[in-house]
Computed example of a mutant assay.
Amino acid sequence: MAGLAFLDAFNPATIVAVTLILLLPGTRPVATACLFVIGAYLTVLALGGVVYLAADAAADLVAGGLVWLRRIAFGIAAVVLLWSAARRLRSYRRQAIALPGWLSGWTALPLGIVVTGADLPNAFPYFIAIERLVSAGVPTGAGMLILAGYAVVYCLPCLLLIGAWLAWGERVHRRLDRLYHRFGTAREVPRSLSAAAGLAALSLTVASVAITA
């Protein structure tokens, strides 16, 4: 569970969004970034809790429900990896990540909810983690506590960014600016046959787990 959570934590959408908030000229970038992270945390916990409770109920009510839950979780992961592999077969234009003009201290929390919610379909480690919880027969209360911890780990890179900003200020500002120019600006992403092959192989491996589950 911890490994899946750390894998899921390196999410470009939330990390770049927090980076942009901290780089924005304003009087309260840290407070705004914290509210954004709270929105992300609540979204991961709430949607994960809904999926977990529904999956747990389905596993109990449907014959072979646990097997199908495992197949669905690993199947989603295989499809996402295969889609990523297909994208690397050709160059594509990556759009710049920009914050909406209506962002403020009042709207940072709902923005965190929207950004995180829109990206959760790609968070296949989360679905696998939920399947592991159900398969292990973890009691509902303990399962929700584990998901709460998972959501904390998911937000950990953003929290570390905020902490580093408070501790080192201008030095972190320069590094965050470089981070944004690497991951957040519009640019042409060249095709990579090696990356596509690696992702396709990983997709086949995960798909085989889904089929033989």
Results as ranks from 00 to 15, higher is better:
82 L>A: 15
61 L>D: 10
34 C>T: 11
55 A>W: 08
54 A>C: 12
174 R>A: 13
155 C>L: 11
6 F>M: 12
100 P>K: 08
150 Y>W: 15
181 H>N: 08
105 G>K: 04
24 L>C: 10
105 G>V: 06
179 L>Q: 08
170 E>H: 14
198 G>T: 08
129 A>N: 06
76 I>Y: 00
62 V>T: 06
128 I>P: 00
108 A>S: 14
167 A>C: 01
165 W>L: 01
164 A>F: 01
76 I>R: 05
118 A>K: 13
208 S>R: 11
162 I>F: 06
27 T>K: 15
41 Y>N: 05
130 I>K: 08
52 Y>V: 05
145 L>V: 07
211 I>C: 00
171 R>Q: 07
69 L>V: 12
18 V>R: 05
130 I>R: 08
162 I>E: 04
15 I>D: 06
42 L>M: 14
105 G>F: 06
201 A>D: 09
108 A>Q: 02
48 G>M: 03
167 A>E: 02
86 A>C: 12
41 Y>L: 13
33 A>S: 03
39 G>V: 02
112 G>W: 12
102 W>F: 14
158 C>V: 02
106 W>P: 08
168 W>N: 09
97 I>S: 14
203 S>M: 00
169 G>Y: 00
81 L>P: 01
64 G>Q: 04
90 R>F: 02
120 L>S: 04
42 L>Y: 02
116 T>E: 03
105 G>L: 07
207 A>Q: 03
213 A>L: 14
24 L>K: 12
33 A>V: 03
194 S>H: 09
73 A>Q: 07
185 T>N: 10
25 P>F: 12
147 L>D: 04
193 L>R: 15
4 L>A: 15
87 R>V: 04
84 S>V: 09
90 R>K: 14
159 L>A: 09
147 L>I: 07
199 L>P: 11
21 I>S: 05
127 F>V: 02
153 V>A: 10
67 V>F: 11
136 A>V: 09
16 V>N: 01
196 A>Q: 10
7 L>M: 14
111 L>V: 09
62 V>K: 10
118 A>E: 10
172 V>E: 06
21 I>E: 06
142 A>I: 05
45 L>K: 05
195 A>M: 12
160 L>Y: 03
85 A>P: 04
120 L>D: 11
146 I>F: 11
205 T>F: 14
142 A>Y: 01
51 V>M: 11
176 L>A: 12
73 A>R: 05
125 P>D: 07
205 T>L: 15
184 G>I: 07
1 M>R: 06
108 A>K: 00
59 A>G: 08
51 V>G: 02
53 L>Q: 08
48 G>P: 06
168 W>Q: 07
53 L>F: 07
122 N>I: 01
104 S>L: 06
23 L>G: 06
188 E>T: 13
11 N>T: 11
86 A>K: 09
162 I>A: 02
44 V>H: 12
211 I>W: 13
167 A>I: 05
184 G>W: 03
162 I>P: 00
